[in-house]
């Protein structure tokens, strides 16, 4: 499912002293089946952008095209239910997402609301909780009596249970432990491949951008300041530093090596690429010593 932004601006609390222009004339296209990563400084407008992807927020001006639906500031909320099924959002704070009195009801709510029988929905809840790495015994617990990382996993399970076509993820791995982070990112990509999901991810983990995304959008002050494939975007380390943005740890490490006189044909993005490059340097050194 493709989503297109045409000159989208968004203003919080217009015509009040708190008026704030969070998005300014954003135009871009999220391709069907793509994995888009949205990066940028605190307050640059990432969460505001995401909430336009299923019309939780509507543009103050401009239009958002979500498959065949056109969203403008005049669109009424009435006909948005089918859209909300197709585009699932995992919010930045999981507490915002959770509401039911048990974990099971929380996960089953979406499917039931969109037509599953309670029995089917219950089964799905059990399947999803295992998928996100939690014990089934938590199903009867209140979602508010969990640790932060456990809440996060339940919120993710709830959105996956709706089987959306577009998965919108606002810092979904914040609060997860390191192995949980990896497992959840693997889960997202395997779903993307097996079910042809479109994924839009906001993250501060540049490793995840390098490892999984095929399209990167860099935001600053409510505008898109760069867009492209990860390798293009991360190629200009100095530009990113200048914008107060980070690059993947491996790229940063290689950049430090370059400052000490090393040479790379192209800067590595991942640990594997960097280790391969360094291994090749050792090989060359050994050969020239012989």
């Amino acid at each position: 499912m493709a989503i297109t932004f045409k000159s989208v601006s968004y203003t919080y609390q217009p015509n009040t002293p708190f008026e704030f222009h969070a998005l300014n004339e954003i135009s871009t296209k999220i391709e069907d089946g793509s994995f888009t990563a949205l990066i940028g400084h605190t307050g640059s407008g990432k969460s505001t952008f995401l909430q336009h992807l299923n019309a939780l927020l509507k543009p103050t001006s401009g239009t958002v095209l979500i498959e065949d639906a056109t969203i403008t500031h005049e669109t009424s909320n009435k006909n948005l239910k089918p859209l909300r099924k197709k585009v699932g959002i995992v919010f930045q704070f999981p507490e915002k997402q959770l509401f039911a009195d048990t974990v099971k009801k929380d996960i089953a709510f979406g499917p039931e609301n969109f037509g599953s029988t309670p029995e089917e929905a219950g089964k799905l809840a059990k399947k999803m909780i295992e998928l996100v790495g939690l014990p089934v015994s938590l199903l009867d617990r209140s979602p508010f009596e969990l640790s932060g990382g456990q809440m996060r996993r339940v919120a993710i399970a709830g959105v996956l249970a709706m089987q959306p076509n577009v998965l919108v993820l606002d810092e979904p791995t914040a609060g997860l432990d390191p192995s949980g982070r990896q497992e959840i990112m693997h889960l997202f990509t395997s779903l993307q491949q097996s079910q042809h999901f479109t994924i839009v991810l906001v993250t501060h983990q540049m490793e995840d951008v390098a490892n999984y995304a095929n399209h990167v959008i860099v935001m600053e002050h409510g505008k898109i300041v760069k867009e492209g494939r990860p390798r293009e975007v991360f190629a200009d380390v100095e530009w990113l530093h200048d914008k107060q943005l980070d690059v993947p740890a491996s790229t940063e490490f290689a950049f430090e090596m370059v400052k000490r006189g090393f040479h790379f044909d192209k800067l590595p993005l991942t640990e594997q690429e960097l280790a391969d490059d360094i291994a090749a340097m050792f090989k060359r050194r050994r050969r020239s010593n012989e």
Binding site: I39, G40, H41, T42, Q92, G148, E171, A174, G175, H204, M206, Q244, L245, D246
Partner: peptide, 11 residues
């Protein structure tokens, strides 16, 4: 308690 989990790395 994970007080910086939503800050960008430089922040």
């Amino acid at each position: 308690d994970e007080a910086t989990s939503m800050l960008d790395p430089i922040g």
